[in-house]
Amino acid sequence: MTPVTAGRARPAHAGRRRRFSAAAPPWFFAAPALVVYALVVLYPAVSGVVYAFTDWSGIGQDMSFVGLANFRTLLGDEQAMGSIGNTLLLTVAIVAVQNGVGLLLALGVHARLKSRALLRVIFFSPVVVSPVMVAFLWKYIYNPDPSAGLNGLLGLHVDWLGDPSVALWSIAGMVVWQYAGYSMVIFLAGLEGVPRELHEAAMIDGAGTFQRFRYVTWPLLAPAVTINLMLSTIGGLKLFDQVFAATNGGPGYATETLSTVLYKQAFVFGKFGYSTAVALVLALFVAAVSLVQVYYLRRREVTA
């Protein structure tokens, strides 16, 4: 069993794709949405960039142009630099675990289980809850009291959110719990698109469960993998609500992410200019990472 089967099936489908896109509606159908997007998202975002080169406090009229000083400050800012480390660790953990768990869940509820419809709803349900609510909920689950919450359930004695060496992973766990169902849904969509004929053919060729997954399902899941990795990476890099509600960056600076730093600089310290500079760096960073990711992941996509 080799991916050749998959390769052979490609031209027919690709042709169909093209026919679909030929019948696609003209681009100006998107114009109203684009205008709204430009007015509500693009214009404010771009006009805000100016502040990254000033020392504006966020209120009042006092403002002077400081050139690249804010970016120089960022390089020497221990706290911001530390938060970049935290952000990357969180992102890697979330991307790996959330998608791993999501894939397992998807494979599980894709199987012919009696209660699979119900299970899908249950696994997806945390996604629709507001992240802040989830964080407050988990604050109770992460109660350090050995007889309460997760500690009580597992018989542990861990200070989940209060121990600086654990807190970051506790937040990652919380995020994974909430969004694994989201990855699951996308993987499920991918799984539904794997033609049964290929599985039948592979079975006739004598492929076992794992081999069928490895050589049939997995290559055809590539588009789902691309979208899941990209969405979870962007989500991880931008992570704010959960951290803010659960630990507010603490204890100390142990769970400070780039988003919480830029928030604090703007609204707590009154350094709007500097905060905008941090935001700009974050936005460029996220864009760069996503583009590289899409480029590489797209190359390994095949279709059935």
């Binding site: 209060g162 121990d163 600086p164 603490g250 204890p251 100390g252 600076y253 142990a254």
Partner: peptide, 12 residues
């Protein structure tokens, strides 16, 4: 606030 949390955690 932050340094007190760090002190309590023994990290500073």
């Amino acid at each position: 606030f932050a340094v007190i949390q760090e002190l309590l955690a023994g990290k500073s």
